[in-house]
Design a protein around this nucleic acid. Structure first.
Lengths: 293, 293
DNA sequence: TTTTCTGATCAATAATTCTTATCATAAACC
DNA sequence: GGTTTATGATAAGAATTATTGATCAGAAAA
């Protein structure tokens, strides 16, 4: 019954078997057959035929009106399924750490929303450790976070790395130099990120200082990069922060530390290999962004 | 593509090819074939199959949800067409004269609205002559009116007849008699309906009086039966009205006039033979009502 | 009247969809 | 750990269904 629906709708528009058949890429007898079949199954006459005019009956008029709307509905359903398969539908919740530039995230998201406008993208800012829980709990689809992590359920994809640099007040004695050596910071208080947040990074910094021949004086260990900048800006010490923060604070200058060599890694994480097309497409897009950027 | 929609929806509910095939009165290979075809044409995978479980993909979930709604829409369209063909849809505007009982109209309408609840029935009260215009203009589908009429475009179907009786005050000298003779009304003023409204009836009454040997004294000719009753109730004369008005006025008694023999005819009129199922069904219903009542 | 245009019908053909039988696979069970 | 069982895929042939081209019949227009 439903399979002749399209034919009937076209015929109802044309009110002419030959023209309608042509539009349907059929011959006229085929269309006559279909409409006859449809009328038989429906148990009612849809068109009054005569050799020189074809008219819809009342039932035909109603069917034409309702059916064309319903067929649009059906086509919409197919379209939505195809969009969903392409990844261009549904919602995508992305977690990110404090640094939106880490792993080219903003570029990736811009490109992704261009390519897949049907996806409802939500960004949620949370620290790496919380992201792991959120991913596991399913409240995040994908996360930009900072490895290494002990989370075997997650699949991590390297997304970028940036050097740790020293942030110091613009009026600091060392601020004029283009680059620093660790030893020059021997007598400064160092503002570093908390060990829990990044044990590798924390320990790498301590090790580098030891190699440079001193035991650093540490200030309180911080949980947010921007808090560290604020402390440094208050003159309470020199902060070690990722290079992408350079220029983000008016009172501070950011200098590479030549013998530090510690990097902040960023990875794109998901729980296992994603199955949702929208997630797969996002990761693809993010990787293609890295490749080109 | 659309022809497998139903199969997919059932499969999406069952998530089991054999069970779904059984529900569809198909064998499992046939269903596998259909779904495969659907996936090919759609260009995406709708189900993840494994020998011990079948799961919808994201596209499949969306398609199942949207498509079942759309298919309901389609089935609704077919249903509406069938209802329309049965006559159980659309609007029906019925005109009637002052006497709702004429031609068993109320019984016919009650029966019709029971049988065809989908039709939106409207009743409009207007005099016979206006009904002719309204029918011709298309603002009435069918009318209960009083022939004869000179209106060749209308098809009339006899729907009933009733005697004209005399309505007189309960305190009238003649009110005690079971029936009257015309001659007894010789000296009364007679209240009759206007000649324009019913030339045949008007002339028949005059002729009957002549035969009874007198020229009646007529009061102003009236255009509405109920006005005639009001006049009679005021003691201004004896009204000649259709029998169905008997008992409708507290101050009046209604008496047959044995040698009058004038009848009010009622007919069901349409413009030509109706083509709209709702109209055809109404006329059928009204006739079956007459047959039985 | 004749012509023309239109849709219906028919028989043959083509396409499709279905069925039966069989296979391959993964979970469940002893 | 091997065996059983349940399940879906596949293939070949059969059945059904749809399409075509040719032809017919009827109504409007010329």
């Amino acid at each position: 019954m439903i399979k002749y629906a399209k034919s009937f709708c076209v015929l109802a528009e044309e009110l002419h078997f030959n023209k309608a058949a042509a539009r349907l890429h059929l011959t006229q007898p085929a269309l006559s057959y279909q409409i006859k079949k449809l009328e038989e199954q429906l148990g009612c006459i849809l068109l009054k035929r005569s050799p020189h005019k074809v008219l819809l009956t009342e039932a035909g008029m109603i069917l034409a009106r309702e059916l064309s709307a319903a067929l649009n509905h059906v086509n919409g359903a197919f379209q939505m399924a195809q969009d969903a398969a392409r990844g261009d539908s549904g919602a995508l919740v992305i977690g990110y750490c404090e640094l939106p530039e880490a792993g080219n995230m903003t570029a990736a998201i811009r490109r992704y929303t261009d390519l897949y406008p049907g996806v409802d993208v939500t960004l949620i800012n949370m620290p790496t450790i919380e992201q792991v829980d959120a991913l596991t709990a399913g409240s995040l689809d994908v996360a930009f976070l900072h490895p290494p992590l002990n989370a075997p359920q997650l699949v991590m994809r390297p997304a970028g790395e940036e050097l740790i640099v020293a942030a110091l007040r613009a009026d600091h004695a060392l601020a004029a130099q283009p680059a620093l050596q660790l030893a020059e910071l021997k007598h400064e208080r160092l503002i570093v990120c908390a060990e829990q947040l990044g044990p590798i990074m924390y320990n790498s910094i301590l090790a580098a200082c030891g190699k440079a021949g001193f035991q650093p004086k540490l200030r309180e260990e911080m949980f947010r990069w921007h808090s560290m900048l604020d402390q440094a800006a208050s003159g309470l010490g020199v902060a070690f922060v990722p290079a992408s923060l350079s220029g983000t604070h008016p009172l501070l200058v950011f200098k590479p530390v030549e013998d530090l060599g510690v990097k902040l890694l960023t990875a794109i994480a998901t729980v296992g290999d994603p199955t949702r097309p929208a997630v797969i497409r996002f990761i693809e897009t993010a990787r293609s962004c890295q490749a080109r950027c």
